[in-house]
Nucleic acid binder design. Structure first.
Length: 470
RNA sequence: GUCCCCAUCGUCUAGCACGGCCCAGGACGCCGGCCUCUCACGCCGGUGACGGGGGUUCAAAUCCCCCUGGGGACGCCA
């Protein structure tokens, strides 16, 4: 017997697709509930539909979970390896007269539904085999004997009391003709077996719940706490599509989102904590609670995700970001400096990058070799005019003999030069930037020069001048 | 079609369970400004919502009803 006070939650993805935004948030809520209550979190793969489930999806889902930092205490369990267990429960229900064999074909059942629809009723199986006492046989399914009247009610932490007239329900299938268990049977059996105490899931499952409640009762077990969270929709207020959100969360990793930013953004879709927007994962584990869940559907907003990510990029230390940046440099076929250098560089990039991919983009002039910088002739024409070249030649000489090459010395040194020449920094800033980075935008010049080092700065100025003159 | 759920700025939301502190607060976005060597960051300001109608009450974003709108479910998918 398990300790009744321990919270046990679970995440039961079906390996028929990727882990997307919606699934990830469901997983996160359940994980957070377990973690915040000192409970356990179970991972279970619902692969009873053998044809549609795949190993690749399973791997992809597990990797996404690990990437998000949603570690599980038990599992992963695979329903496909537990068919014996489900069969025992089905037999039990059969013995107790709570289930029966049915020989109706899918076509026949479809016809029954059609007839009901025509009468303006809810499409249902009509119970033809309910009292026929059929024996087991090939092509026969097992159906649950649902009550014909009364109502089935349950409590939901978000929706309150929910009740459905039993006449709305039909004798749903527990075991398919091929002998495999259906979803409704398998979830309930597993949730009972695994001692699940709290079930948080998308509210598209709300109308399944009465059926499951009926099964719990037939099995004479206590109900878990249900919580049906609102669904996440696309900008068009429709179901998430591949364009926005329905892709694998691993795609967000590829685009340069941080896992902490991901969970931060996701948790705020349907949950709040006063006016706070930014949370670390550790903070969430502490502050999450069922009380602050909201019950209306929400829309996935890529812009806000980007902003949350930028906040986490700023909050992370250069030491933590360095190895990640290395991954992105490599993925972009860029040279990959050692972490020591990157730790110097990253603070200049943090305020500018909304994603790690953007950080890699900003890093380009700092990781490319001097001779590999590609100058746009138009930029050179515009900024390295003959007049400017005159000043830069002189600056080059000054810099060659610069007493120090840290940003403060550089600022002082260049300041003196400007004063002697009687010109303002503004006049030379962009030309220097173009020469040093082959770009119109970069981090501050003095910091950039310090990072680049004297040798590169001189080489780049020389090279840019030559190209401009030639 | 039938049943279920939901309803505060364009979006995420606070407030609603214990009506008055709310001519509704924060955040993203957008617009303007400041900072400034560029681009960003940051800071300051602005834009912008209680879906409609009935009640209940001295008083309603908050309670009740209807309408409307949106979403979901109705599988031998999960």
């Amino acid at each position: 017997m398990r300790d009744m006070h321990t919270v046990v939650t679970r995440f039961p993805p079906s390996p028929t697709g990727n882990l997307h935004i919606g699934g990830a948030r469901t997983a996160l809520f359940n994980w957070l509930l377990a973690r915040s209550m000192g409970g356990r979190f179970v991972l279970r793969l619902e692969d009873t539909d053998v044809d549609r489930s795949s190993r690749e999806m399973t791997h992809s889902i597990l990797e996404a979970m690990r990437w998000l930092g949603l570690d599980w205490d038990e599992g992963p369990f695979y329903q496909s390896q537990r068919f014996d267990l489900y069969q025992r429960f089905i037999d039990h229900l059969l013995d107790k007269g709570r289930a029966y064999y049915c020989s109706c074909t899918p076509q026949e059942v479809e016809q029954m539904r059609e007839e009901a629809r025509e009468k303006g009723e809810k499409p249902k199986y009509n119970g033809r085999c309910r009292e026929r006492n059929l024996d087991p046989g090939p092509e026969r399914v097992v159906r649950f004997k649902s009550p014909l009247e009364g109502e089935t009610a349950f409590k939901d932490v978000l929706k309150g009391d929910v009740a459905v007239d039993n006449r709305e329900l039909d004798d749903f299938v527990l075991r398919r003709a091929d002998g495999t268990p259906t979803y409704n049977l398998a979830v309930v059996v597993d949730d009972v077996e695994m001692g699940i105490t709290h079930i948080l899931r998308g509210d598209d499952h709300l109308s399944n719940t009465p059926k499951q409640v009926l099964l719990y009762r037939a099995l004479e077990t206590e109900l878990p706490v249900f919580g049906h969270v609102p669904m996440i929709m696309g900008p068009d207020k429709k179901r998430l599509s591949k364009r926005h959100g329905a892709m694998s969360v691993l795609e967000y990793r590829r685009q340069g989102f941080l896992p902490e930013a991901m969970t931060n953004y996701l948790v705020r879709l349907g949950w709040s904590y006063g006016d706070q927007e930014i949370f670390s994962q550790a903070e969430l584990r502490e502050k999450f609670s069922l009380r602050n869940l909201s019950k209306s559907a929400c829309v996935f907003d890529p812009d806000k995700l980007l902003w949350v990510n930028s906040q986490h990029i700023k909050a992370n230390s250069p030491q933590e970001l360095a190895p990640l940046l290395q991954d992105f440099l490599q993925a972009n076929d860029l040279p990959c400096p050692d972490t020591g250098y990157l730790i110097q560089l990253i603070p200049l990039l943090q305020p500018r990058a909304k994603t790690m991919q953007e950080m890699a983009d900003w890093a380009v002039p700092f990781v490319r070799a001097d001779q590999d910088l590609v100058y746009d002739p138009e930029l050179l024409d515009k900024f390295l005019t003959a007049e400017i070249a005159y000043y830069l030649r002189q600056l080059l000489n000054i810099l060659r003999d610069a007493p120090g090459f840290d940003k403060d010395s550089l600022e002082a040194c260049i300041g003196d030069f400007l004063q002697e020449q009687g010109i303002r920094f503004k006049k030379l800033a962009q030309p220097i930037r173009v020469a040093l980075t082959a770009s119109k935008a970069s981090p501050g010049l003095f910091e950039s020069m310090e990072i680049l080092g004297q040798k590169s700065v001189l080489a780049r100025l020389e090279r840019a001048l030559q190209q401009a003159e030639g």
